[in-house]
């Protein structure tokens, strides 16, 4: 079954440039995503996962230079004017953030914010928009939604606020939902509620979804496919269950081993030595090689290409844990 992809990204690179610095934050990222698919970008701080996602809607500071090709629903995002971007942000791709308090406007009620967005994008009457806002709040399972429509963001608890932001993001019926660590700031009992909600909404509405997270547990709960990022590059990508069960790139393997899990009690955690690299001072070859236990001489000469390491799986490694089958680009 071949569906038209909602997102096509080819060789995306993002550099942050100003007078003092020139940092390659994201380099050579390519992927595509069809309707109804959930991709998880997994990585530690500074791995470029958030920047990759923001680049899709060009939500980056002015000193960011984006190169490569990004197509959302068949439209080229890189060449768009600010006006055209506005028509993409919302109806095509909508975003939810880690901190709903900063993403919601504190001086307007939840209902007003959602209704305003609907009016401006779909041109319906305010009364109709208000009705839809109520439906949306019910859809994200906010209890006594009618009353919450007139609440200000600060009057809601953290979990309800995050639900309100999801409702706002869904207000323009986006084909693509971008979620940037949406549950990181939440308590465990609330986090699982939001994750289950997002999972069911995504299925119901058939949205393509990109989830950015540093938490493997979150990825396991929501993702179909997973792409592990390190120092601005995809180092491994594949179906989530397969990658978690049989990681191929040494970084993914190390990350999984060093994550505390039930049953690790009393044992020493195998850990990855060293610290994540300084983006201003990356090694010539593989960025992970200074911390890698499977390092070969070839690792330091040039950045290894992504190679196929199994069905629907790729790893950017010269000496992967799963043996390469066919060498791709």
């Amino acid at each position: 079954m071949q569906r038209d992809p909602i997102v096509e990204v080819e060789d995306l690179s993002v550099r942050f440039v100003n007078r003092d610095i020139d940092l390659s934050v994201v380099s050579g990222v390519s992927f595509s995503l069809a309707a109804g698919e959930v991709l998880c970008l997994l990585g530690e701080s500074g791995s470029g996962k958030s920047v990759t996602m923001r680049a899709l809607l060009r939500l980056l500071p002015p000193h960011a230079q984006i190169t490569g090709r990004i197509r959302l629903a068949g439209r080229d995002v890189i060449g768009m004017s600010e006006r055209q971007l506005e028509s993409v942000r919302g109806p095509v791709g909508a975003m939810i953030f880690q901190e709903p308090m900063t993403a919601l406007d504190p001086v307007f009620t939840i209902g007003t914010q959602i209704a305003e967005t609907i009016v401006s994008h779909e041109g319906v009457s305010y009364t109709d928009a208000r009705k839809r806002a109520l439906e949306l709040l019910e859809m994200v399972q906010i209890p006594s939604a009618e009353r919450r429509l007139n609440a200000y963001p600060h009057e809601l608890s953290g979990g309800l606020r995050q639900r309100a932001m999801i409702a706002l993001a869904l207000s323009c019926r986006p084909a693509l939902l971008l979620a940037d660590e949406p549950t990181t700031a939440l308590d465990a009992t609330v986090q699982i509620q939001i994750l289950l909600l997002l999972r069911s909404l995504q299925r119901e509405l058939g949205m393509a979804t990109i989830f950015v997270t540093h938490d493997i547990g979150v990825a396991c709960e929501v993702a179909d496919r997973i792409s592990v990022m390190y120092a601005g590059r995809f180092v491994e990508t594949g179906p989530v269950g397969d990658v978690i069960a049989r990681p191929s790139h040494p970084y993914t393997a190390g990350l999984l081993q060093s994550t505390v899990h039930a049953g690790s009690r009393g044992q020493r955690l195998p850990s990855i030595p060293g610290a994540p690299p300084d983006l201003a001072d990356l090694p010539n070859g593989c960025s992970f090689s200074p911390r890698c236990s499977r390092r070969l001489a070839a690792c330091d000469t040039s950045v290894p290409p992504l190679v196929g390491v199994g069905e629907d799986r790729m790893a950017r490694c010269v000496n992967p844990l799963l043996v390469a089958e066919t060498v791709l680009a």
Partner: peptide
Amino acid sequence: SRLSMDPRQRVDA
């Protein structure tokens, strides 16, 4: 509420 580390055993309720 702990997240499962196994995509085949997701939390359902």
